[in-house]
Amino acid sequence: MNQGRFITLEGGEGTGKSTQARAVANALEKDGLKVLLTREPGGTPAAETIRELLLTGAEEKWTIRTEALLFAAARAEHCAKLIRPALARGEWVICDRFIDSSRAYQSVSGQLSDSEILDIHRIGSEYLMPDRTFILDLPEEDALRRAAARDRGESDRIGGRDSSYHRAVMANFRKFAVDDPDRIRLIDASQSVEAVTADLVQNLDGLTA
């Protein structure tokens, strides 16, 4: 049996990751592929419990180091019990966020470096990396508008951080795309939903053969 493929969608708040993850999964299923759609943090019962701990409560609930370790713990569970078994069965795994979100978000404060976050990932998840990562890129004002419409005034603990924080997160994501163009593709998320999906599917080149 052939090993499956691992695809992740990344980006800031309101860029359409969840919508596009579903759309890509649907497109691949129409091509006859077996697809598992999942998300981070989450994907397994234990990881979903950690998700609730991470995304609810006051900003000061966790230190940045504790937050990074909780994300890594959820990911370790997710990889061991859901993602790796699905890939071994030959399935395509489409994940809404993965390690690049930890890199982009948890390094903003300067308390953790990118290399430290990747070290935690190596220990927790044996350094599992996606075959292809898409970063959905949207102008800040459009992302803010979409996120506000989605959240209806009830942002989660991380989504509710100030605009300078989210601007720094997107700057990190864009840097990742420049630094690792073989794995990471930057996608213009200001297009129509259908056009973004078409871009994503087209940028699976080299993986579907």
Rank of each mutant, 00 (worst) to 15 (best):
D199N: 13
A23R: 11
Q20P: 12
V201S: 03
N203T: 06
G124V: 11
P181F: 03
G159Y: 11
T56C: 12
G206H: 07
R39W: 04
F173N: 00
E126C: 12
E48T: 05
A27I: 03
T8N: 08
E91I: 00
T49K: 14
Q202D: 15
I117R: 07
V24H: 02
A149M: 06
R22I: 14
A80M: 08
C95T: 02
I50W: 05
T8D: 02
E77M: 01
E126Y: 08
K34M: 11
R89L: 03
Q106D: 13
I64T: 11
A104V: 09
T133I: 12
D137M: 03
D151P: 07
R146C: 00
I50H: 06
R89T: 02
P139A: 00
R152C: 10
L53M: 07
A168H: 12
K175P: 09
L54P: 03
G32Q: 08
S101L: 08
Q111D: 10
V169I: 09
L144P: 09
R145D: 09
P139H: 04
S115D: 15
E48P: 05
P41D: 06
R122L: 13
V201M: 08
A21Q: 13
S190A: 15
A171C: 07
R174E: 00
I117S: 03
Q3A: 14
D119E: 13
P139I: 01
G14K: 00
T8M: 04
D205V: 13
E48A: 01
I94H: 00
L55H: 06
W62P: 04
R103C: 12
R122P: 14
I50Y: 03
S125N: 12
L82G: 14
L33N: 12
R103P: 10
A86T: 01
F176D: 04
A76M: 05
R39I: 13
G43D: 12
E91R: 01
E116Q: 13
T44A: 13
T44Q: 13
T63C: 03
S115P: 07
M129A: 04
A104T: 15
L138Q: 11
R157I: 04
T133Q: 01
H166C: 07
T197M: 15
P85N: 06
L204M: 10
R97C: 06
R103Y: 09
I120M: 13
S190N: 14
A68S: 00
D100M: 06
L53W: 07
E48C: 08
T8R: 05
N172M: 09
A23C: 14
A23T: 05
T15S: 02
A80I: 05
E60I: 12
G42A: 08
G206L: 01
E59P: 07
Q111H: 12
Y127R: 15
D31I: 14
G90N: 03
T19W: 10
C95H: 09
N26A: 13
